[in-house]
Amino acid sequence: MKKLIILLLIGILITGCSEVKKEENKVYSFTYNDKNFILGEEFSTSKYGKEVRYAEVPSCAGQGVDKTYTYDHYEITTTPDGDKDKIYTIYLTDDSVKTTEGIKIGDSLENLTKTYGNDYEKRDNAYTYTLDNTHLEFIVVGDTISSIEYYIDIE
């Protein structure tokens, strides 16, 4: 009997605090106009719009096919995950688009480190910032950014 009361009390106590918000991990994402591209999310042209150019890149062996959807200012590459295609990389193709934090192709290295900080991994000309399993890679030639790419780790 006592046990039952205790159980009920605990139950009521917890029920009261049962409002749970959706968990948000900090990851890199790219926004263009009203479209928000999140690495690892499922991709479809109905959601993100019809591409200007489409290409398929099969793997060397095995049955996976990567797909690239080229739009006016950026290119999305998807990779298969089960029966879905998930966003694998986002490649900015010109300087008319900015990252969410405001950096675009042509900006200076100084601007880059001011915006994103110094916690990057540098390999040759590539400066890579990492959040969770997403990466934002800037290729800097001389003092200017010549390439910007988002990519996610593949399982």
């Binding site: 793997s59 095995g62 996976g64």
Partner: peptide, 11 residues
């Protein structure tokens, strides 16, 4: 033991 089998894993 990934969700994706060896055969389908990203190469």
């Amino acid at each position: 033991f990934n969700v994706q089998d060896f055969i389908y894993s990203k190469f």
